[in-house]
Every structure is written in structure tokens, then in C-alpha cells.
């Protein structure tokens, strides 16, 4: 029974740890499917985390915080769009720039406004998103097997967790069952064809980037307002890049993205849980090995040893209209 409880606990933290990855990964899905590479996910999450925690602690409202996180993250996404769509700049370069501006400005502004070494004040109850207890969770807590799974694993998360997982079918529906989604995918594969059909490539790509901004904003808000009670400098700690890896791992598909993020979240949860304790058969595994595993797996996938990851064909190429 102890083993079972331990497994439920690991899976529970898997869910918690994979939520920011999942939101960022879906965010990247929108822009990359529209043909705009975005390695600025990390920076936009960071901006969202900072703006969310700062606004929540100043206005004493979690929802205002979330709104601010989204607004600021979208603003950074639009800068990326301005550089890479309007001015046809290099998308990678623009993404790198955004990551740096985000990393620096969150610390500088945080220190100037709150004087706590780049942190925002610790969020009080009501300023962060509280855990939601699903109906009947306490009632069936003691039922074997189902009880712990329902009350520990599924219940007791914040609204953003459920939102993140709801975004998976929603994103699938938007991309594969709506006109907007069809055009968005088309603009990532063959923008000239979309242009010929009389649809603005630039405006479509901008809209895709706004979706990206909204989702990275929520991802950032989750980090600073759910997982942690406030903003800490550099709190994304490479999650944006792991999300990018997950996106490739998922071959740019929403449902696969969820499984990839859950896998990477599980590796993270297992690394924390196993810290120092030996595994059966394998022996003691260094924590650093577990931390590096998502990246190693992605490289192996990219090398084509586990299927082949084919990116959207027009990805990374600015669209120049024929003149």
C-alpha cells in the first residue's frame, strides 16, 4: 500500500510540474504551426510570472494578476511579431533577445519596485489561486485505490491546472476543426498559398503569436501564483526550453504535447523523489542525469532514432510577398 501511495504522490507532483510545461508547449504550438519559431517562450513565461505576481500583490486580486500576466506576455509576443513578421528579422535572434530583455527587466523592475532582491512580496491568501476540492473528494478518500486517485491525484489542484489540461482538446479543436486553425496550419506550411487565397499572412501570424502570448502568460502566472507564492528571479529556470523540447518530442501535435509534458514532468518529479536513493536493478542514479534526460531524449528523437520529427515547412522563414 505504501508503494501505491508513493506512486500516487509522484504522479500528483508530475501533474503539478508538467502544467507550466504544457501551457508553454501549447503556446509554442500555435506560433510554430503558423511558421514562426519561438525560442522566446522562456522569456515570455518569466514576464508573465513577474507581472502576475506583481499585479496580484499590488491589487490584491489573483485574477487581476492573471490578467496582467497575459497582457505583458502578449506584449512581448507582439514585439517578437514586430521583429520577425513585420520587419522579417531572424526569428531565432528575436527570440533570444526577448529572453534576455525578460530576464534582465524582471529583476531590475522587481528590485526597484519591491526592494526584496528581485522578489515580489509573498502573496497572501486571495492573491494566489487556491486549490479546488472536487465534489465528493473527502467522502471517498478512504475507499481503496479509487479514493486516493480521485482525492489526491485529480482533486486539490488550482483552477489553472484544470485549465491547462482543458486547453489540450481545445487547441486540437481550434487547429484541426476550425477555419482559423486550417489557415494557421496552412500559413506554417505554405504561406504563399494562403496569400494567394487573399488572406493576410502577417495578420494570421500575429494572431497565432497572440495565442502564444496568452498561454505563456498563464504558464508564468501558474509558476509565480500557484506553484510558488510570489516571483523569484529566473524562476522559469529553463522550463521554456524544456517546453520547446516537448513540442518537438510531440511532433507539433496537441495531444502528443500533453504526453510529452507529462513525461518530462514525471522525470522531474522522479528526480526530486529519488534524490540520493538507489533504484532497483540500476543502482544510484545521479540527479543530474535525470535532469538532463529530457534534453538527451529530444536530441535522440531529433536525430531520427525514435520516429522522425518534421517541423512545419515554412517555420523560421519570414514571408516576403512577391513584387
Amino acid at each position: 500500500m505504501d508503494v501505491f501511495i508513493a506512486i500516487v504522490q509522484i504522479l500528483d507532483s508530475t501533474i503539478r510540474l508538467s502544467v507550466p510545461l504544457l501551457l508553454a508547449c501549447l503556446a509554442g504550438l500555435y506560433s510554430e504551426r503558423a511558421g514562426v519559431f519561438d525560442i522566446g517562450l522562456e522569456g515570455k513565461m518569466l514576464v508573465g510570472a513577474f507581472a502576475g505576481a506583481a499585479a496580484a500583490s499590488v491589487f490584491h486580486s489573483a485574477f487581476l494578476g492573471l490578467g496582467m500576466a497575459i497582457v505583458m506576455s502578449v506584449a512581448f509576443a507582439l514585439v517578437h511579431g514586430f521583429a520577425s513578421i513585420t520587419h522579417r528579422g531572424n526569428q531565432i535572434v528575436s527570440g533570444v533577445a526577448i529572453n534576455f530583455v525578460a530576464a534582465g527587466s524582471t529583476i531590475i523592475l522587481g528590485q526597484a519596485w519591491f526592494q526584496q532582491g528581485g522578489r515580489t512580496p509573498a502573496l497572501q491568501p486571495g492573491e494566489r489561486f487556491e486549490a479546488i476540492t472536487l465534489p465528493g473528494a473527502s467522502a471517498i478518500h478512504d475507499v481503496p485505490i479509487i479514493g486516493p486517485i480521485y482525492s489526491e491525484l485529480l482533486s486539490g489542484h488550482s483552477i489553472l491546472v484544470y485549465l491547462a489540461f482543458a486547453m489540450v482538446p481545445f487547441t486540437w479543436w481550434v487547429l484541426f476543426r476550425t477555419r482559423f486553425g486550417l489557415r494557421l496550419r496552412a500559413v506554417g506550411e505554405n504561406p504563399a498559398a494562403v496569400d494567394t487565397a487573399g488572406i493576410s499572412v502577417a495578420w494570421l501570424r500575429y494572431r497565432a503569436l497572440i495565442c502564444t502570448g496568452i498561454l505563456t502568460g498563464i504558464a508564468g502566472a501558474y509558476l509565480s501564483m500557484v506553484q510558488n507564492g510570489g516571483f523569484v528571479k529566473d524562476m522559469t529556470a529553463g522550463k521554456g526550453y524544456i517546453a520547446l523540447a516537448a513540442l518537438i518530442f510531440a511532433k507539433w501535435r496537441p495531444v502528443n504535447a500533453m504526453f510529452a509534458c507529462l513525461l518530462f514532468g514525471f522525470l522531474d518529479a522522479a528526480a526530486i523523489r529519488l534524490q540520493g536513493s538507489p533504484l532497483p536493478l540500476i543502482g544510484k542514479v545521479p540527479v543530474q542525469f535525470m535532469q538532463a534526460l529530457p534534453y538527451v531524449l529530444t536530441v535522440i528523437l531529433l536525430a531520427g532514432f525514435i520516429g522522425k520529427a518534421i517541423p512545419p515547412r515554412a517555420g523560421g522563414v519570414p514571408y516576403v510577398k512577391e513584387r
Binding site: V93, S94, A97, I98, F100, A103, G104, S105, I108
Partner: peptide, 9 residues
């Protein structure tokens, strides 16, 4: 870091 980002941008 900000200046660096702005220069890259």
C-alpha cells in the same frame, strides 16, 4: 542583460 537583449533585438 537588458542592454544585451536590446542590442540583439
Amino acid at each position: 542583460v537588458i542592454i544585451q537583449g536590446l542590442v540583439i533585438l
